[in-house]
């Protein structure tokens, strides 16, 4: 069953066409990776699917809801943005309490996620005084805390140390096993290759490759990086 479905999504900023008639279908339980060079349109696509910005034309549906109804969509999903930006004057503990309150869920999970990301010892420090890595962990915790049906992750491994990159990888694999769906944008292709079951390559706002890694390979020994470079160079 398709949990993310788009119909001719187009996004323009003035005369610049960031996304050009994109059609994507992602099924429940997919670990979907969207890859592309800088400025290809990955983040714009993620922002449209998460209701953060509206498309110039076309329709997008997440879990059956039109993304125009952004509040309903955001209730069901977790978002990790490209820039780690928790509120400056709240502590990590307060931020997670706030997220629980807005999402209408019990605060019992706050302690668990503070512990999971080793944020417990920083729980009384203002977010503005945290390191980038700590802030990234906090954004991940805020996206995971309500056990959403779909996770939208924009460069989730950036700023994380290798231990936490591994920990997050394992968490995401378990999450998909338990019927969660993931939409991932990343430049770290080695990690993505190990995780993604479906892949799309985007360039200049257009999808230039879509399917499983095996379907996109020309040779059996081709890595995701090789596929990526080949498709981009072919354009």
């Amino acid at each position: 069953m398709s949990v993310i479905h788009t119909e001719n999504i187009r996004k323009c900023f003035g005369e610049f066409v960031a996304l050009d008639n994109l059609n994507i279908d992602i099924d429940a339980g997919d670990f979907f990776g969207l890859f592309g060079p800088n400025g290809a349109g990955k983040t714009t696509m993620l922002r449209i699917l998460t209701g953060q910005t509206q498309p110039s034309s076309g329709e997008a549906f997440v879990l059956g809801d039109n993304v125009k109804n952004s509040v309903e969509v955001k209730k069901k999903i977790g978002i990790v943005p490209e820039y780690e930006s928790p509120p400056s004057f709240l502590t990590p503990e307060e931020f997670l309490s706030f997220v629980c309150s807005v999402r209408g869920i019990d605060e019992k999970n706050v302690e668990y996620w503070l512990g999971f990301f080793d944020l417990y010892r920083k729980k009384k420090t203002l977010c503005k005084d945290l390191s980038k890595g700590m802030r990234q962990k906090l954004m991940l915790a805020s996206a995971f805390i309500h056990e959403p049906e779909i996770l939208f992750l924009d460069e989730p491994f950036i700023n994380l140390d290798p231990i936490y990159q591994k920990k997050i990888r394992e968490y995401l694999v378990d999450y998909v096993k338990n019927s969660g769906t993931i939409f991932l944008c990343s430049h770290i292709l080695e990690i993505a290759e190990k995780l993604c079951s479906k892949i799309a390559i985007i360039n200049n706002g257009k999808i230039i490759g879509n399917g499983s890694l095996d379907e996109l390979r020309k040779r059996k020994d081709e890595s995701l990086e090789d596929v990526f470079c080949r498709l981009i160079e072919d354009v």
């Binding site: 998460t50 953060q52 509040v71 990790v80 930006s85 509120p87 807005v102 999402r103």
Partner: peptide, 14 residues
């Protein structure tokens, strides 16, 4: 002017 409102975009508020 207190803080960036960016993070509101990731939770269900308008």
């Amino acid at each position: 002017n207190i803080d960036s409102p960016d993070f509101f975009g990731f939770i269900p508020v308008t």
